[in-house]
């Protein structure tokens, strides 16, 4: 058990490096969806909230804290994913074959 915090710290360090590598090349167009999508992931605290709310125990205060946490984390998760999806559904590429560099005769629609 003594080593457990160290293992968790390993996970922490490697995940942070992974996060930096994953995100470093996101085009500016996607900054908002990236942010709200990442925010939805941070709702993972829901898992902890479930443990707190569902554990068997006499202490009503712990259950109340856990239940409130479940509520807020679910708002975060459900709202975060749905709003990200709604935004991403709006992003579209130009319909015609002309690229933005070509100056002549755009044939949209």
């Amino acid at each position: 058990m003594e080593l457990l915090p160290v293992y968790l710290a390993f996970i922490l360090a490697l995940s942070i490096f992974l996060g930096f590598e994953l995100i470093s090349k996101v085009p500016a167009t996607l900054h908002t969806p990236l942010m709200s999508g990442a925010n939805a992931i941070s709702g993972i605290t829901l898992v902890g909230a479930l443990f707190a709310a569902g554990a068997e125990g006499p202490d009503w205060l712990a259950t109340a804290l856990g239940t409130t946490a479940v509520f807020f984390a679910t708002v975060n998760v459900v709202g975060g994913y749905l709003v990200t999806d709604r935004m991403l559904a709006m992003f579209r590429k130009r319909a015609g074959p002309s690229q933005s560099g070509a100056a002549s005769e755009p044939q949209d629609k």
Binding site: I11, I23, I41, F51
Partner: peptide
């Protein structure tokens, strides 16, 4: 609460936010 998925996901989001 000694939960690895919270640590992994939380730090991914933390790193992403720092980059932004």
């Amino acid at each position: 609460i000694n939960n690895n998925i919270l640590i992994v996901s939380g730090s991914l989001v933390g790193a992403a936010g720092i980059i932004l």
